[in-house]
Design a protein around this nucleic acid. Structure first.
Length: 471
DNA sequence: TGACCTTTGAAGTTT
DNA sequence: AAACTTCAAAGGTCA
């Protein structure tokens, strides 16, 4: 049995990740492939400039701890070369006999941002042996070991957790969610006093990953679903490499605190949305909108205005021309049915539940002018056919007009704008146009308007719509 | 970022 | 069955 003390200085909490912290005060026992039992004691030196006093006190305590551990180690260690990691000068982890001279003060502020931590990369020979201390320049992660071995190592690590860890195993929290690990104060949960649940959660993920890596013929899939944050820890690195994901070592070691939302957030699984086939008018719009936009008068018009004009032009379109678009729409529908058998427009209802804002027609009266005012008496040829026949103007809407007086026919009826008759005009109050109404003269219309005005007072305000009036 | 505007028509839901 | 609602396209606007 060999004992090794590993001291780690965390000068930069941003480098401190949950994976790392969960080893605090735990003893990890692991069997290597050579069936040697190695025991670690991990002490984390955490330096926070914000509370130097506390740090000084804890530093002293840690020094004492280290001495104890070293003494312990000294007693149990028989061979000075038993360290799994060579005692290179400058490396802050040294074989136990020399460790008592080790001072925390020499560690923290001057040591600089520590790289990754390798808690259980054990055997001291290639390809698994690792030089300790700073992160080796080359990628020293799961890529340097076989997936099977990596899985084994992780599994061992998870299974040989201390009893202290075991007590967290059964806490009723969900599967590891990277975002949950970094909630609140960000890395706060990773401090030595951090929430052990997060650590346990992470540990459980490790177990899952290990199991997946061991059983999966290809390291993709299951591990990939772990969505471990790219924290640069060996475990993370291992998992990510097992998943064959491109890893960025430099970012992982130095800037791993900057975990973007997209990294934490699970990628959105976009629901398949099959759009409705276009109807005849939509085909007409699609074809003619660009042409209309080229016209000088409509170059800078808003889309809604263009659509209004397109609606007018649709009505003016000869039946034969319209028929072409109806057939286009029919073909499109048929192809759509062949392509998506069983598809129903109902599905789109469910997926795109848009909250329709109630249209406030009252404000929309600027351009709503009677044809007489709009084109002038001289240009009667431009008037709508209703105006020509001295009927209600098709396009005029009076904001304060009474309900129930509109110049429109049923929805979908060619020749009338649906905004006057469709959902916007809405319901019983829309007062759909009838032939008799069309035939009303101006006097009768005025009388009707007056009647409606009195009716309006009895109608709840929110139900009041902006109707059209006759001319 | 997403609802809204605006048009007509198809297809869905509600009355 | 009639009435009502939603969604197709488009791109600017607005919250």
């Amino acid at each position: 049995m060999r004992h090794t003390l590993i001291a780690v200085n965390l000068t930069d909490l941003s480098n401190c990740n949950v994976l790392f912290m969960m080893f605090i005060s735990f003893y990890i026992r692991m069997k290597t492939l050579r069936t040697e039992l190695i025991e670690f004691k991990i002490i984390v030196f955490y330096r926070n400039d914000a509370d130097d006093v506390e740090t000084a006190q804890s530093s002293h305590q840690l020094t004492e701890d280290k001495k104890d551990v070293a003494l312990e180690t000294e007693l149990e260690t028989r061979t000075p070369s038993s360290s799994i990691i060579g005692s290179k000068p400058g490396a802050f982890v040294k074989p136990s006999p020399t460790f008592p001279t080790f001072s925390a003060a020499t560690l923290s502020p001057t040591y600089g941002p520590l790289p990754l931590f390798y808690p259980f990369f054990l055997p001291n020979q290639a390809p698994y042996g690792l030089p300790f201390g700073r992160m080796p320049s080359g990628p020293m992660d799961a890529r340097s070991m076989s997936p099977t071995y990596a899985a084994f190592v992780m599994q061992q690590a998870a299974q040989t957790m201390s009893p202290t860890f075991e007590m967290y195993r059964n806490f009723p929290f969900g599967p590891a969610s990277p975002s949950s690990l970094f909630q609140g104060s960000g890395v706060g949960a990773a401090t030595p006093k951090g929430n052990p649940l997060a650590a346990a959660t992470m540990m459980r993920s490790m177990q899952n990953a290990a199991a997946a890596a061991a059983t999966s013929p290809h390291p993709l899939n299951s591990i990939n679903q772990m969505r471990l944050p790219q924290m640069g820890s060996p475990i993370t690195s291992m998992a990510s490499n097992l998943a064959q994901q491109p890893s960025n070592n430099s970012r992982g070691s130095a800037n791993n605190s900057k975990i973007t939302k997209s990294e934490i957030k699970p990628p959105k699984v976009k629901e398949q949305h099959i759009k409705k086939p276009l109807n005849a008018f939509m085909w007409f719009m699609k074809e003619n909108r660009p042409k209309l936009m080229e016209e000088l008068d409509y170059k800078e018009r808003q889309s809604a205005e263009l659509n209004k004009e397109l609606g007018r032009r649709w009505h003016d379109l000869p039946k034969e021309e319209q028929q072409r678009y109806y057939e286009l729409a029919k073909t499109d529908r048929e192809q759509h049915m062949q392509k998506y058998p069983g598809w129903s427009a109902r599905e789109n209802y469910a997926i795109n539940k848009k909250k329709k804002r109630k249209r406030d027609k009252s404000a929309d009266n600027g351009e709503q002018k009677k044809c007489r005012a709009r084109f002038g008496v001289v240009n009667q040829d431009q008037w709508c056919k209703h105006c020509k026949r001295k009927k209600r103007c098709l396009w005029y809407r009076e904001a304060s007009s009474p309900v129930g007086v509109v110049s429109s026919t049923t929805p979908g009826t060619p020749g009338t704008p649906s905004s006057l008759s469709g959902p916007a005009a809405g319901g019983a109050l829309s007062g759909r146009d009838t032939d008799s109404e069309n035939d009303m003269d101006a006097t009768a219309a005025a009388a009707a308007a007056e009647r409606s005005r009195s009716m309006l007072n009895q109608v709840p305000k929110e139900q009041q719509t902006t109707p059209l009036i006759c001319q």
